[in-house]
Design a protein around this nucleic acid. Sequence first.
DNA 1: GTCTATACCCGGATAGAC
DNA 2: GTCTATCCGGGTATAGAC
Lengths: 188, 188
Amino acid sequence: MPRADTARDRILDAFQRVLISSGERAATLDAVAAAAGVSKGGLLYHFASKDALVDGLLERLDTFAAADDERMRSAPEGTVDYVIRTSVEEGSAFDEALIAVSRLAQGSHEKARTALAAVRARWETAIAAAVGDPAVARTIMLVSDGLYYNSTLLGAFETSDTRDGAMDELLAVLGRLTPASPGPAAAS
Amino acid sequence: MPRADTARDRILDAFQRVLISSGERAATLDAVAAAAGVSKGGLLYHFASKDALVDGLLERLDTFAAADDERMRSAPEGTVDYVIRTSVEEGSAFDEALIAVSRLAQGSHEKARTALAAVRARWETAIAAAVGDPAVARTIMLVSDGLYYNSTLLGAFETSDTRDGAMDELLAVLGRLTPASPGPAAAS
DNA sequence: GTCTATACCCGGATAGAC
DNA sequence: GTCTATCCGGGTATAGAC
């Protein structure tokens, strides 16, 4: 269901693209329509209002989030490893929807913020299940939030910090926090 | 220089207030003028354009940031303790300016994002100076970012997580990361 | 130094042709 | 199903009175 050739999906793709590259304010109906290769009126046939367009994006995010939930819990490298590594942008369809919604949330959009919080909650419970100590789980979740903040909001970690051993180094540091298993944090 | 009775400062205060409570989109010239108790025209006499208004706020932030820099390095509880605890909103003048600029950065405003990154850079170097290991310093900075993200963007940690022992617990976990001094992280 | 009035532009949404 | 034309509201900025 990611990028079918239906017009709806092509418009949602365009919406995401504009949102990610130019921010919420720039994501006007005109801009999205242009990016999707239709007119404003054409867009409004598929999504009756801008709110409907947002809802469409939020729905898409939810679909991806559910799929991610499974992958996260069954990740062979362990849940913590998976969450930390995917905290920083890597270009998956889920990621793109997430960042797009993030841009929306940055504006003021309440529904977008709620959706974002819901995704975060999934991660948090998964981490808590993976590591025993709740205080440690909270710390790890905060590191994930920090990575996400830098990656999507400040625009850092695009090149230098993501590559090389920076992530491994970080995971090694976090691994020291889980007394149960001394190495990389416990798996699911 | 925080809140003199000059009209300029009263307008900047109002700008901050609207930004914090209602977000960037709501911070129109009309709204700010009303909150400051002047008319739109009156506001535009002091700040010739909205851009000038933003610049005024950014200048104010810079002043506060410089003062915070000193306090951070000479904090009796240690730099790490200071940075982590102040990562979450507490109502200081610096905090208010910071959150206001944060709201601006959320929109798309490039200058605001740069200013925010500059403040973050101050913290990061201070932490790096306080703890020896650069990987540990980066981890701590990410936790600070995470707290900030939750506090200002997601609106979490307003009540439950800030109070009680949550912060102490978090600092205890982070303290385990600094091999040099087993207790609370090393001071400046 | 502060106000009112107004010009101008832009974003969202509707109407109706094709 | 997609287009063009148009309306409406609201945001920035200017002009000029007081």
